[in-house]
Design a binder for these strands. Structure first.
Length: 853
RNA sequence: GCGAAAGUGGCGGAACUGGCAGACGCGCCGGACUUAGGAUCCGGUAGCCGUGAGGCUAUGGGGGUUCGACUCCCCCCUUUCGCACCA
């Protein structure tokens, strides 16, 4: 063999893998399955190291699982619809499809050069009709089940992307993609009824014990379950306004009802709109001002709480007292009923509001263990639970009990009921853009909204020659697309011209991977029954409440359609850390991206993979350093050299197993290290996925191998003179046997990290069939057992001595040995021994002596 | 403001359920081999005291539990992330 030349080696094995279709799999009921998946990629152009870190992590897991005998599904695909393609089209005049497919081709090449072991036969791209027709299929199924519906509503609008955004896609009032400040618009939109699953999604989060707690917390908060009650306040008929009606509020604190001193309505509330028309100029001006202060205006800091007295009153249903009705800018129209009862004594916002407008403050909750504070000395609201006061028949009742009783009484009187409120809202999926899945419905003058027939799917996205970038749906400008036949009556109809949110595409692609070429159905349920759920899923935490909640929802929809029995799509989730360079996230605009191809050219894909895996745990962010990469390269070259020099000796036929040999102490020690390493690396990879410590375990073994070879003079190291060249003669059969075992275990365990080099070395060691056929090395606990162990001895908590004793020394004997030890005696001398603790068991014992002066 | 996670050498990071703090790597220092070495092999590297053996101090700070605490509990500080008027 020659020097380590990664470029040659890597090309060789990548070609072989491709030609052998090495990572393609079929369902095999005889083997345990393992579905390993990384979040598929948006084909933005060039993948940088930050992107590919995730694929490397998944690849280590996939390759390791394959070696451990699993039937591993490890597919990849492209989240290929979306705005950047369209923006590029507007800017450069290239068609989005051309732009996208070219990017896919380039990025696929990048991934192959990194040596990611994907089943490329299952590759999919969401922009192809063969994929998106099933989005349309899913849409129609959801329409049938009333899970998709259309309504006019106020929606988030990104003025830069010229489209609607779902709530999940508005981050701090800004567009998740471009960062523009989001405004609102009234539009007729399609929604998916995710709220129907709110309770289930929340409850099932408890079962996701292999998800990061952080992601689950974010999802729980996003779903935002609140138990409370709806309660009606009758409006007091005003002069000249006979039709009074009532206002329904939502509250979680019905126990404070006797302190409800006013009603607050959101500016968007229907009654406010109605009253404003009849109201004076001041009313309308105030309303206009409040409506200008939408959610986004609040991001920079708290806006002041302001209100406007409508001049009307309602009756508190429990006190019977009239309470004024105000409009307040901090009441949200889209949450609950858009109306709240103001309880200034026990809600901080209401308190501030009451102080500002000199509204009365009635204390109705007294702390369990203290007196009732008088309202005029309140400096802030008392929001804690307590005992009711000033509450008529409910006086003296504790808050939690009062909530139950008051809710029950309200129900009996027909003025309210207990209810559960969620923050989660339905998923708006209409997008006023071109590069997405056409929504398969038509509008017929006679029949109204008509779904496209299943047999007419896909509704193909027409080619557009030019992109103007204007605000309305580009599809609306193509008469050939818009003008169609009504599937119901055969008359003229117009197609829906909005396309679907691309998160629809990504909410089920992991199911499609199980059966990616099926032309009859989205997937054969049998395939998902075999492969599902995804056992290991990795990707960025930025999808915690986007993709990850949509996927959980859509998986349940497929379940309810009868396509799968899965509740949850992903058993284990790993959110990988980002790659920083010069302290910042890699991005083209910051000019700090590291292109994997550049690194591969210099150091090879294996060194790049090893470095990224070694530098930090997968969940943590890492700071890119060239020196670190070089260090990994050095390690690989070190492995290469030692295998190179030993391969002739240990690679031949008929070398006996080390267990059948007479071994000396040195040889036994090396064997022990080999098996300790097997155990450690195995556990670090599976189940811990501590890839960085797994690598350091391998480094230790290599260091030990070098030390062993230097001591036994069986290796030519660091020199090339004639005299030294004669050194590398191994005389003992035992030495050959233990070296062979160590080297082979090393190469096999290294292979998930540095697959090309490992295959090359494995071949050089005389094996055909590759590392997967060889399997993961087996751990022998007998071999790993040490005959002698070091026992630390503490005196008053400080380690004062270490004793080397036979491993099987009894606790009693150990105690005697310790007390007889000179080093120990020095610290015990002249003091009274209070007790001697022998902690731990077996080889991990420790002696702790407590003395008193 | 609320919630979560985290704070360990010059740096990235180890330490699994309380049991030898600093594995492994980077960097740095030294040695060997060399015409040379930024290659390679070997050794050293938390701080302080000491020639040495050894000792003292150290896991953000302060308390506590324990024979024993990076690990558990309480208070405080800092950082990062998430939520941000959800009634």
């Amino acid at each position: 063999m020659a020097d380590y030349k990664p470029q040659t080696v890597e090309k060789k094995w990548q070609d072989r893998w491709r030609d052998a279709r090495a990572f393609e799999v079929t369902e095999d009921p005889k083997k345990p399955k393992f579905y390993c998946l990384e979040m598929f990629a948006y084909p933005s152009g060039h993948a940088h190291v930050g992107h590919v870190r995730n694929y490397m992590i998944g690849d280590v897991v996939a390759r390791m699982k394959r070696m451990r005998g699993f039937n591993v599904l490890h597919p990849f695909g492209w989240d290929a619809f979306g705005l950047p393609a369209e923006n590029a089209a507007i800017k450069n005049g290239t068609h989005p499809e051309t732009w996208t497919l070219e990017n896919i081709a380039h990025m696929k090449g990048q991934l192959q050069r990194i040596g990611i072991s994907y089943a490329w036969d299952r590759e999919l791209a969401t922009c192809l009709p063969g994929y998106y027709r099933w989005n349309q299929w899913l849409f129609l199924k959801m329409l049938e089940r009333d899970l998709a519906y259309r309504r006019r509503s106020s929606v988030n609008w990104c003025p830069s992307c010229n489209t609607v955004l779902a709530n999940e896609q508005v981050i701090n009032g800004e567009c998740w993609r471009c960062g523009s400040t989001v405004t609102t618009r009234e539009l007729e939109q399609w929604f998916f009824r995710i709220t129907k699953y709110a309770d289930e999604l929340l409850a099932a989060a408890e079962s996701l014990d292999q998800w990061p707690e952080k992601v689950l917390t974010m999802q729980r908060n996003w779903i935002g379950r609140s138990e409370g009650a709806r309660l009606k306040f009758d409006i007091v008929p005003a002069a000249g306004v006979p039709a009074a009606g009532s206002i329904e509020v939502f509250t979680t604190r019905i126990d404070t009802i006797y302190g409800a001193n006013f009603i607050l309505l959101a500016p968007e509330h229907a009654l406010v709109q109605e009253w404003a028309r009849a109201g004076g100029e001041a009313f309308q001006a105030a309303l206009k001002k409040f409506q200008g202060q939408d959610r986004t205006a609040r991001m920079t800091g708290e806006i002041e709480k302001e209100g406007f007295d409508t001049g009307r009153t309602a009756t508190n249903p429990f006190t019977g007292q009239p309470v004024p009705i105000w409009v307040a800018n901090f009441v949200l129209g889209e949450y609950g009923t858009g109306a709240v009862m103001g309880v200034p004594a026990h809600d901080q916002r209401d308190f501030e509001f009451a102080r500002k407008y000199q509204l009365p403050v009635t204390v109705v909750i007294r702390p369990k263990d203290g007196g009732a504070p008088a309202s005029d000395i309140l400096t802030e609201a008392a929001e804690s639970d307590g005992v009711l006061v000033n509450s008529g028949p409910y006086d003296g009742v504790a808050s939690d009990e009062a909530r139950a009783r008051l809710t029950g009484d309200a129900r009996k009187r027909g003025i309210g009921e207990g209810t559960i409120q969620y923050r989660l809202k339905d998923w708006g999926i209409s997008r006023q853009r071109y590069w997405g899945t056409p929504i398969p419905v038509l509008y017929c003058d006679k029949c109204g909204m008509v779904p496209e027939k299943y047999e007419n799917l896909p509704v193909v996205l027409p080619k557009i020659a030019e992109f103007s970038g204007r605000g309305d749906s580009p599809l609306a400008q193509i008469p050939q697309f818009v003008d169609a036949t009504c599937p119901q009556c055969g008359g003229a109809a117009k197609r829906e011209t909005d396309t679907m949110d691309t998160f629809v595409d990504s909410s089920w692609y992991f199911l499609r991977f199980c059966d990616p070429h099926n032309e009859r159905v989205p997937f054969d349920p049998k395939t998902v029954a075999y492969w599902g759920p995804v056992d290991f899923y990795s990707g960025g935490v930025e999808h915690a409440i986007l993709h990850l909640i949509y996927s959980r929802f859509v998986t349940r929809v497929f379940r309810d359609i009868g396509m799968t029995t899965l509740d949850e799509p992903f058993s284990r989730l790993l959110t990988q850390g980002m790659v920083l360079n010069t302290g910042q996230v890699m991005s083209k605009s910051k000019g700090n991206v590291v292109d994997p191809d550049d690194m591969i050219q210099q150091f090879g894909a294996d060194a790049l993979r090893l470095y990224v895996m070694f530098v930090a745990p997968p969940e943590k962010e890492i700071e890119w350093t060239d020196a670190g990469l070089e260090g990994s390269w050095r390690f690989l070259a070190r492995v290469w050299r030692i295998v190179d020099q030993l391969s002739e000796t240990i690679g031949g036929e008929g070398i006996p197993a080390p267990g059948s040999q007479q071994l000396n102490d040195e040889e036994r020690a090396l064997r022990r290290k080999t098996h300790e390493t097997i155990k450690r690396v195995t556990v670090d990879l599976d189940p811990r996925v501590h890839l960085n410590t797994a690598v350091s375990g391998l480094m230790e073994l290599v260091n030990e191998l070098y030390a062993f070879c230097n001591r036994s003079r069986c290796l030519v190291v660091g020199r090339s003179t004639e005299e030294d060249a004669r050194v590398g003669v191994i005389e003992r059969a035992g030495t050959v046997a233990v070296l062979k075992e160590a080297i082979e275990a090393l190469v096999l365990m290294l292979s998930p990290f540095a697959p090309h080099m490992a295959e090359e070395l494995w071949e050089a060691l005389g094996h055909t069939g590759g590392v997967v056929a060889a399997g993961w090395p087996a751990f022998d606990p007998e071999v790993a057992k040490a005959s002698e162990v070091t026992v630390p001895v503490q005196v008053n908590g400080k380690v004062r001595a270490r004793l080397l004793v036979p491993a099987e020394t009894s606790d009693e004997a150990l105690r005697a040995l310790v007390l007889a030890d000179l080093q120990v005696a020095k610290h015990v001398e002249g003091r009274t021994i209070i007790k001697v603790v022998i902690a731990g068991a077996g080889p991990n014992r420790l002696v702790s002596i407590v003395v008193k002066t």
